[in-house]
Each structure stands twice: as C-alpha cells, then as structure tokens.
C-alpha cells in the first residue's frame, strides 16, 4: 500500500548556515496517528514545514500519498498536507470564521454551493458551526484552535500536520480538541513536547533530536524509557504516571 507520507534522508540547513535536519527517515501509513516528539530546537517545526514544501529539502525526498514534493506538484501537495500552525492568530486572518474556512478550498478551486457545503462540513467537524459569522478576534483560545483546524480540514487533506496543538490551551479546551482529533479518523502527524497529549492521541511516536530520528515506536514504550527521555531533555509532568 502507498504510505500516506514517506520521508527519506531529509536534510536541511537554514540560509544562515544553521543545519536543522541531518537526514530524517519517516514512513506513515494511511490512518495512522503519529506524534513527533523532541525538545525545543530539535527540528520538529522545520520538518513540518518541509512536508508541504514551504521549505525545500537540501537533500532527500518526501512523498505525500505517492506524490513527490517538488515545485511542479506544490499546489496539489499543499492541498494534500493540511498544516495547522501553533498560533491560531497566524492562521486566522479573515474578518469572519466562515471566510477563513473558505479561504483554502477557494484557493483550490471550489466555488458556490460546493464551497459552502465544504465550509459547513469542516465547521461541523470541529463543533463551531454556530460561530460562522463571528470574527476570530472574539473567540476563546480553544475555539480559535478548533477553527484553525477547520480551515485546514476544509481542504480535505490526506494528512493533517499539527504544530503544538495543545499549546496555550486550558484543560477543558485541550480535552475538547483531543475529542475532535480522535473523531476525525484522519492520518495525523502531531508535533509536540506535550507527552501526555501524545500518549492520549497517538499510538506511535517518533523522537527527534539534533535533526535526526533517535527513536520510533509505540508511544507508551517511548515514554516509559525515562533514560531515553532524559537524554533528550524530555520528561513527564510532575505526578504523571504511565499505568
């Protein structure tokens, strides 16, 4: 079967010479939910920005559902890879929630009734239909996060890539977002250093540090290895136990 995402030997250096990725290998099957763990500066977000071609790989290849990430394929790649940014204020830039959710699919050629249907479908999936005419400015942090998710769902992506989805969320909003993500049943790559959230949502985890994959396996096993975590500046929150 064609993997949803296939990354081979991905290396990248920023223009200032800072080498962020040293050869990442990653294969994600359709329907899988994988957490990408790692300390700050490990290269997690840099990896995410490669998946939809915002950054161009210095070396190595990326394929999304069989389609290589290259300049000619870029528009279709961006439809296939739904990137949800860390700060919803970066993602939500239109005057109303509805316009923002319509922005992506309209760019990909949807119009009229089909576009409206897609917008409603995406907002319903995150439970925000009632807020379609409101300004993103007047939503709570959790609501903004869910609308940001809807803006990407509306493009009907093959794979969802979430950058720190639980950052700055209060506990209730965090749980609500988890419920939404679990209900979607989509291939998901979740970049995070929120280990309990990774355990709750992703059966499999990949640990990245210094631009390489240092561990790949069931999330529970990875988090039980406290030496591995400590070696990469990760640790479970106080009072948290794996049972």
């Amino acid at each position: 079967m064609t993997p949803a995402l296939l990354v081979k030997g991905l290396a990248f250096a920023y223009p200032d010479g800072h080498q962020a990725l040293y050869g990442i290998d990653l294969r994600v099957e359709p329907g899988e939910r994988v957490a990408v763990l790692g300390p700050n500066g490990a290269g997690k977000t840099t990896l995410a920005l490669h998946l939809n071609g915002v950054h161009t790989a210095g070396a190595g290849t990326i394929e999304v559902a069989g389609l290589p990430v290259t300049k000619v394929n870029l528009h279709e790649i961006r439809r296939r890879v739904g990137l949800v940014f860390q700060d919803p204020d970066d993602q939500l830039f239109m005057q109303t929630v509805g316009e923002d959710v319509a922005f992506g699919p309209a760019n990909f050629g949807l119009k009229g009734a089909e576009l409206d249907a897609r917008v409603h479908q995406a907002l319903a999936a995150v439970g925000m239909t009632d807020h379609i005419d409101r300004s993103p400015l007047h939503l709570s942090g959790g609501q903004r996060r869910r609308v940001a998710l809807a803006t990407v769902l509306a493009c009907d992506p093959e794979i969802l890539v979430l950058d720190e989805p639980s950052a700055n969320l209060e506990p209730v909003a965090r749980r609500e977002l988890a419920e939404v993500l679990l209900s979607l049943g989509r291939t998901t790559l979740m970049v995070t250093h929120d280990l309990p959230y990774a355990l709750q949502l992703c059966p499999r985890s990949v640990l990245i540090d210094d631009g390489v994959v240092v561990a790949d396996g069931p999330t529970g096993d990875l988090l039980a290895d406290s030496e591995l975590l400590a070696a990469h500046r990760l640790e479970l929150p106080f009072g948290f136990r794996l049972d």
């Binding site: 915002v54 961006r78 990137l83 940014f85 700060d87 970066d90 993602q91 922005f103 576009l115």
Partner: peptide
C-alpha cells in the same frame, strides 16, 4: 512572515478568492 506561511500553506497564490 508566519501569516504568509500559513496562507501559502492553504494554497494562496497572490489573489484573494472573491466570493
């Protein structure tokens, strides 16, 4: 810069969709 990245990621190619 981040807003621009987020827009490009949703297929923006320089023109706002007119509805």
């Amino acid at each position: 810069e981040r807003v621009h990245l987020a827009m490009v990621s949703r297929g923006w190619r320089g023109a706002m969709p007119d509805r």
